[in-house]
Design a protein around this nucleic acid. Structure first.
Length: 267
DNA sequence: CCTTAGTCCTGCATGC
DNA sequence: TGCATGCAGGACTAAG
């Protein structure tokens, strides 16, 4: 499941390969990967060139020279590939053919990913909260929030902060020593401050490791993401906590698998 | 305002 | 071996 660090890894790679290239044709193999009208999608994109490639939360944002924006949410299993093996044909959803002869492939096994086109002056992704890469900004964002929802739910809410998913929410709460079920308005200012520092830290570390490789996500090319070696709670249920030795537990919060240490993260 | 459950999807793990 | 079941979950939606 590509979260902020995985998407950042992807765009850094795509940038070096795609900037300046022109789309010659588009082949769509699964219509529902595209939000909005298919014909409009094709007509507007063909002939356009990639001017910049950015990340916003978990979205990849392509800006084209004709002022159009295309955003891609990778969902659970989405990949943006520059080459395609035979076995990957099966789950190919969209192929963008370049004038240079190469292609950008949108590959998505579970079809949760979505590609969307934004008209010229429309603001892209207006619902997204701020980027969580700056400690002070994260702290100020969380400090101003008033809600009784579980803190884990708050961290997964993309309108609050953009880019945090299940892995890094669990990891951040573990390192901050906060129980994931704790109502947000009962988390102390000290803990919020601590969390504000930890979130950018773990995301930054994960970017440095080129993301976390689990069954559904793998960076586009070698070297593979190595961040999975640094996970303390995610997927570690039944293992002993590295800090206190208690068994890591897995519970469900709002239908999301949630991993935590009952010793380090008191209710 | 909030939570829960269902929807979309496929591959993999488990159990009989 | 094969078949059925359950599970994973990001974003969205309907219902309570």
């Amino acid at each position: 499941m590509p979260e902020l660090p995985e998407v950042e890894t992807i765009i850094r790679h795509l940038r070096t390969e795609l900037i300046g290239k022109t789309i010659q044709d588009i082949h769509i193999f699964w219509n529902r990967s595209i939000q909005g009208d298919i014909t409009t999608f094709k007509n507007n994109l063909i002939g356009g060139s990639f001017r910049s490639i950015l990340r916003r939360g978990k979205y990849v944002c392509f800006r084209l020279d004709n002022a159009l924006n295309m955003t891609i949410h990778l969902g659970m299993t989405g990949k943006l590939l520059l080459s395609l093996g035979d076995r990957e044909r099966k789950h190919l959803r969209i192929e963008f053919l370049m004038k240079t002869g190469d292609s950008l492939y949108f590959h998505d096994t579970r079809k949760f990913g979505k590609v969307r086109l934004w008209p010229c002056r429309e603001t892209v992704l207006p619902e997204l909260g701020p980027e969580p890469m700056d400690a002070d900004r994260v702290f100020r964002c969380l400090r101003s929030l008033r809600t009784h929802r579980a803190i884990k739910t708050v961290l997964l809410d993309q309108r609050v902060l953009a880019g945090i998913g299940n892995i890094y929410a669990d990891e951040a709460l573990f390192r901050a020593g906060i129980h994931p079920r704790k109502p947000f308005d009962r988390v102390s200012p000290d803990q919020i401050k601590r969390l504000g520092g930890i979130i950018p830290e773990i995301l930054d570390q994960a970017i440095g490791n080129m993301g976390t490789t689990i069954s559904d996500y793998r960076p586009p090319h070698r070297p593979h993401g190595e961040n999975q070696r640094f996970l303390k709670v995610y997927g570690q249920q039944g293992e002993n906590c590295q800090i206190c030795g208690n068994k890591i537990e897995k519970i469900r919060i709002n239908n999301r698998g949630t991993h935590f240490c009952p010793g380090c993260q008191m209710e």
